[in-house]
Design a protein around this nucleic acid. Structure first.
Lengths: 340, 340
DNA sequence: TTGTACGCGTTATCAC
DNA sequence: GTGATAACGCGTACAA
């Protein structure tokens, strides 16, 4: 086994001092050409690489950024992550990921572990439980300690930091408007329970569009599903048995796919009888039958921006106490489920 | 901004030595109760936490593990990653992810960066390009340096290290056999080009089952698609126009979903006229229409095992030169696309 | 041109 | 019971 080689090894072997080796490897002008060549050759031969940890300790910069997301097996987060990773790598940063699993405790623990010197800053999206608890002390402490933080997608205005999010309200507004302009009158909304800011925003956009076109809001057409996994339940079946609708706006893909299956089994045609629009534009939208019109979130872009914001803060000498909030526009990707 | 507090700060503030502080915080017997209490109180008040980097430098152990995967926006890898993350976190390790993006160069670069002290070991799945190049020197060097390595899913027998993989051949065999027992005679195989060991194994299982039941292998029924993205092409359309089949085994979900759409549009019924079985059992299988029978890979389990193997090696004092290869059985998840 | 000394934050050993 | 010192690996200001 080849032992990891250090400056000390080289110095001892070549009978020079450690600092000479250090300088020689940086091609310092101070060192004679002879010595430099000798040292560089030796270093190359034994494949010397400086130890990252030592450098981190010295520089008080790790070149690592911590990413905490609620779930890794989730297309959207995964997409954002890719954006983060790409940008960060290009700038010479590594990414340490922790998954909060939608749990407040895990979020806090993960943060504490990484905050003790392992990373230069954080990019994160709040866990469901954190949003429920409405407790952001762990984030506030981070900010107080001067550790840069960027929140994305699931953010809170209780913490002063950079943020990047999607204009969900506008996306929903435009999706609803599109349905209306397509001649749809009875537009249902399938949402999650509304402690999640996101679902809220989307509902608002829906309301706004209806209002604008003087369509009365009918609460019977709004179905609130407890959680994504609840698709196994029969709420949707019941809904469609009792309500007559000609379009459905769903706050995520799964609801849309599931809804489409139910109405298809009931004999309705999509989009002729009922149109569907979903959110997130993940893999399901692309491959469902019919394919699903969807409000795209541009996760990768979001990740890139988040990483850019973070690294800017990390690398800025003086602490800038100005925080930005970048809002990305969503885009409607039209597919079969809404073609009139 | 609260500065990060160190032993030195505390020592200076309380007018004791650094070592006293260190010992007191470890509750050492050597220190008097008074001093300990005073120091511990102060540390608690200012929320002292030891600096991970310094500890890493001292211990020559980072408690980080490096994960290099070809693609993060991919359900299977994501699932494996979850398994790794769970196990690793439970053991007090963080996970640093790098994405090779199916590129040999990126794989090498990522490895080199992390190998310089940032991680205690690696878990990885080979990039397509690496498999094509058939060049594993970067991995061999790692092993020579004594850095633990675990390969999963896309492995090679050219490197001596721990491995964990799925019995793909057996999965394909059982899937094909199932189709045969369901009375299917003309079973097509949709595969990727065969430099990827995986697609190969799956094809072999298919051949084996056919042979066992004395069904002649008809090369016209084997469709090799250049890559996953090639679904946009028309190869499948052409195929179904020219070939009469009653079942299709696909080496991934996308091919299956796409194939099902095509035959449905042609007026065939699934599973009555044509059965489909896919590989990987991701989100598409569950939500497709009809739902897709699929060979499940147990990615999460795979991740856990990989992490367990790695951490065992990392924590073992003496270098064990014995490498394990764990083979997981795949499971067929039956859904609508094969119900007779 | 080369070497010495110090500091990053921690812990372990040994001396007082 | 407490403190000084060395060490982990590196970089650099300063001395020779």
């Amino acid at each position: 086994m080849k032992q990891k080689i250090t400056l000390k090894h080289i110095a001892r072997e070549l009978e020079v001092s450690i600092s000479t080796v250090s300088k020689a490897l940086k091609n310092s002008e101070e060192i004679s050409r002879d010595t430099k060549e000798k040292i560089q050759a030796y270093a190359k031969l034994y494949n010397y690489k400086p130890n990252n940890i030592a450098i981190s300790l010295k520089n008080k910069r790790t070149k690592n950024i911590g990413v905490i997301i609620p779930d890794i097996v989730h297309h959207f987060f995964t997409t954002v992550f890719r954006g983060i990773e790409k940008y960060a790598n290009a700038k010479g940063y590594n990414v340490i990921v922790c998954v909060s699993d939608e749990s407040f405790d895990k979020e806090v623990i993960n943060m504490e572990i990484l905050a003790n010197g392992s990373v230069d800053g954080f990019i994160m999206s709040l866990s469901t439980e954190t949003q429920l608890n409405n407790d952001y002390n762990h984030l506030k402490e981070l900010v107080e300690q001067g550790i840069p933080l960027v929140l994305f997608d699931r953010v809170t205005n209780k913490v002063a930091c950079d943020k990047v999010l999607i204009d969900d309200k506008d996306g929903a507004y435009r999706a609803t408007k599109k349905l209306i302009l397509n001649g749809r009158k009875k537009i249902a909304l399938f949402a999650t329970e509304d402690y999640l800011s996101i679902s809220n925003d989307r509902s608002e956009g829906y309301f706004q569009a209806l209002k604008e076109f003087n369509i009365e809001i009918n609460n019977d057409l709004i179905l609130k599903l407890p959680s994504i996994s609840s698709v196994e339940g029969t709420e949707m079946n019941t809904f469609f048995e009792h309500q007559q609708v000609d379009a459905v706006l769903c706050v995520n893909e799964i609801y849309a796919i599931h809804g489409m299956r139910i109405v298809q089994k009931m004999g309705y045609k999509i989009p002729e009888d009922i149109s569907f629009i979903g959110f997130t534009d993940g893999i399901l939208s692309k491959f469902s039958n019919p394919t699903l019109t969807s409000v795209a979130q541009h996760g990768e872009k979001m990740g890139e921006i988040a990483a850019e914001m973070l690294i800017e803060k990390v690398e800025s000498e003086d602490e800038i106490e100005v925080y930005r909030t970048e809002v990305l526009e969503s885009t409607i990707v039209e597919r079969e489920s809404t073609q009139n």
